[in-house]
Amino acid sequence: MQFSIYRYQPESHDEPYMQSFELADDRINDDTMLLGALEMLREQDPTLTFRSSCKEGVCGSDGMNVNGQNVLSCITQVKSLPAPVVIRPMPGLPVIRDLVIDMDLFYRHYESVDPYLQPTQPNQTIDLDHELLQSPQERERLDGSYECILCGCCATSCPSFWWNPDQFHGPAALLAARRFVIDSRDITTRDRLEKLDDVYKTFRCRNIQNCTASCPKGLNPSQAINELKSLMLKKQVD
């Protein structure tokens, strides 16, 4: 099977280039994942660099662009891919080396939406010595938000994020923002929505929906962003 892989090694090459690799078909089984194939290719060239950790689609460290689609290589079957398999780093963020990108900006956006429960406000505090109970219905509303593994497949496939990567929060951060806005245990909903009410932070989303199409966990950040906009309307009316 033919592979064409993006290579960038700043210490030896000024410019990135595509390198062809060949993997014998008998080494590829039905259950061989792309990450496994990359590890086999690394036996041919030990300088081939990519991230990986859990190898089962939980850690989100091995996102990459395969045949034009952002995927997690550890849960992508090689046999499902048409050859030659063209592998590039996820677009829109700086490449450090080969398939490894600098996710710093992505994480900073995530951090900026305060992705944690805030049970205090200047004029209101929840007693943290007791459990913050939720009804099953309130808990159910969080489904589809908390499962995000921060792989970056969504943000790096979003044209709005490519255009304004330093200002638009991007789908993953906004999905997290929505998760804490709707959480019944958080009492800073109004502050959160006011913070998100910005021409860049939230309203660069143009409903392109690449985020939803590329999410390896099957989440729907696009719908979450629309829900945030609806909640802002509700806040204005209340």
């Binding site: 021409v199 939230t202 309203f203 802002m232 204005q236």
Partner: peptide, 9 residues
């Protein structure tokens, strides 16, 4: 006309 107000208008 910025943020949500622009979106609504």
């Amino acid at each position: 006309l910025t943020g949500f107000r622009a979106h609504l208008w």
